[in-house]
């Protein structure tokens, strides 16, 4: 292979490169073979095929491309500003959901706690009535306490499950939406 053939073949294999990069590489190898002078033929043999020489140059420029992509993620600050704006604009929507969730957790907790405290309070009151000789009131209150105990046993587990399930689901959606808004890297 002559010097010219080598250079032509090399240029052909570098066609995917940016013109500036291609020219730089071509200038280098043109000069390189000129420097080799009489031993240019030997140099061509040592360099290997124009394809392999081109591959080396191409793989290096790919590396660079990947690195520059890595080091320049979408401008962080602008994503944060844009994300914050969207959050603000959609606040009427998600604030309602937030309050609904708070109301649900609050209501369920209060219901369970009401029955649970009645288990203790009602029998105490009943015993006080009994000591005062008010048998019907006393028995009634103790009965109410037992009733509340039964209700509590029935409802605490479903209520807790409902709270956990709702919270988990909403949290999952919140994280997913925030990731979309602010980019994955910014959210642990």
């Amino acid at each position: 292979m002559t010097v010219n053939e080598f250079l032509q073949e090399l240029e052909r294999n570098l066609s995917s490169l940016k013109p500036e990069e291609r020219q730089s590489a071509m200038a280098y190898y043109r000069e390189y073979l000129e420097e080799a002078g009489d031993s240019a033929q030997e140099a061509i043999e040592n360099l290997g095929s124009p394809q392999s020489v081109a591959e080396r140059i191409l793989s290096e420029s790919e590396l660079e491309l990947n690195e520059s992509k890595k080091s320049q993620p979408k401008s962080k600050i602008s994503t944060i500003i844009a994300g914050s704006f969207i959050l603000l604009a959609t606040s009427p929507f998600w604030l309602v959901i937030l309050f609904l969730w708070l109301a649900l957790v609050f209501a369920l907790t209060i219901i369970v706690l009401t029955f649970a405290t009645s288990i203790v309070i009602a029998p105490i009151q009943g015993i006080m009535y009994l000591t005062k000789g008010l048998f019907s009131d006393g028995i009634g209150d103790i009965g109410a306490g037992l009733f509340c105990a039964g209700i509590t046993m029935l409802i605490w587990r479903p209520c807790l499950k409902l709270i956990i399930h709702t919270t988990k689901t909403l949290w999952g959606h919140t994280v997913a939406i925030c990731r979309k808004l602010f980019g994955k890297e910014n959210i642990a």
Partner: peptide, 12 residues
């Protein structure tokens, strides 16, 4: 090293 290694290094 292969002779063709040097150009990418110099360019980088």
């Amino acid at each position: 090293v292969s002779e063709s290694t040097l150009y990418p290094v110099l360019r980088r």
